[in-house]
Nucleic acid binder design. Structure first.
Lengths: 233, 233
DNA sequence: AAGTGGTCTAGACCACTGG
DNA sequence: CAGTGGTCTAGACCACTTA
């Protein structure tokens, strides 16, 4: 007789997942209770729990107290995205990073921006427009609003040397953020900055960050043509 | 004296995170060992572990055996994306979903497609072009290649009734996928399908899926103007 | 070689929620 | 209100990695 070895939670997870993939448990089906699975497989319940949490995080099953664990009927593709600071992104690809401040000013925020910040009484903020370069070519044009009430220190930062992107990320950690991606066609201003033709299709990455409920910044990053966002799974 | 209650792992996590946000632990700093934190806070080491895993998943700290736990120097914005099947996406917003098969054929895959599949000997696949509608208006035009070697059953599915999107997701779970987003401008064919002007900027969602190492499908989803991808964090 | 995080166990209690 | 998942503990051993 071969003595059973202890099961790792990944092995448990893979067994359960296999059962789902091969239709032993079809979408909508209820899986046995953790305790029963543990007994069947001969491991501790917490090991099953660990495996289940992984499957749940991956969106394969849905767990409810008292309700039990069910195979999700409506699978979603769940991906994790890492958006690094632009410098890192360029350097990681072996490129040469460059940065240019284009304009910096104080001004009243447009309604559209105020809406993105949700609840903010602040009406005047700092606007920063800057260009990130990769291998000396325009890479990303960013148009940013920074809440000077939340981040008064920004007034004393020399943004011609260091990008707001980096300064903020290093000095003002956020607790919440909002991300959206969409496509636009380049208007005259953006086209000029990125040195492309008007009307070129661009991917825009828009990010708003808060610390607690206080708005920090809203940035629209207009990426140069050819830019792609990738996930690795 | 008030007797200390047991700490939950979320409370532990929040305390550690607070220490990072308020610079008690600056970027690059090493945090105490789990065991020490546990003793300091008066909880079990596994509770600290749970908290740390959360911070690590969020990208705030980096953990290494023997090396200890360090606050990450270059924070990344880490977001989780859920991409549901198109029907759900439309219905969740309260819209009416519709679907039209445009074309279905067998053909030799272009080199560009073969490259995306990485290693595949298959050269002939099924191509499916279809339109997803939201409130009777074009919403997403999808151009898909399906590997008939991996998914021979697809040959017997009536794709004019059910979208390949849904059939695959229900019947052919994948084990790995690749996602990318980028912007293009609509060519004549896409413009006609989506009933928009040529040259309109479009967000494209491209997804390749595999089961094991066997290719399943590659789909390019051309979204109608105004489409946005959102993350919720 | 030794230090630190990762995992497993067995058991207890809690918290949510569906029947 | 009872069943099920979620969490906590204390302790042991493992596995990776760096000093």
């Amino acid at each position: 007789m071969i003595r059973d070895e202890r099961l790792s939670w990944k092995e448990v997870r893979d067994q359960i997942r296999a059962g789902i993939l091969n239709r032993t448990y079809a979408p909508g089906d209820k899986l046995p209770r953790d305790a029963d699975i543990a007994e069947t497989l001969g491991c501790a319940r917490s090991t099953v729990q660990r495996a289940m949490r992984d499957l749940s995080d991956a969106g394969l099953v849905e767990r409810k107290r008292k309700g039990g664990t069910h195979v999700r009927t409506d699978p979603v593709t769940r991906a994790t995205l890492d958006i690094p600071i632009t410098r890192r992104e360029v350097e990681k690809r072996g490129g040469v990073y460059g940065y240019q401040l284009i304009d910096q000013s104080l001004g009243v925020i447009p309604h559209e921006v105020a809406r993105k910040f949700e609840q903010t009484e602040t009406t005047e903020m700092m606007r920063v427009q800057a260009l990130h370069l990769a291998d000396h070519k325009p890479h990303i044009f960013e148009d940013r609003w920074i809440c000077t009430d939340t981040v008064p220190e920004i007034l004393n930062v020399d943004l011609s040397r260091e990008s707001a992107n980096e300064w903020l990320v290093r000095n003002k950690p956020y607790t919440r953020f909002d991300l959206r991606f969409y496509a636009i066609s380049a208007d005259a201003e953006i086209a000029e900055c990125l040195k492309i033709e008007r009307g070129s299709p661009l991917l825009v990455i828009e990010r708003t960050t808060w610390i607690g409920t206080a708005a920090i910044t809203l940035v629209k990053a207009y990426t140069a043509p050819g830019y792609e966002i990738l996930t690795s799974n």
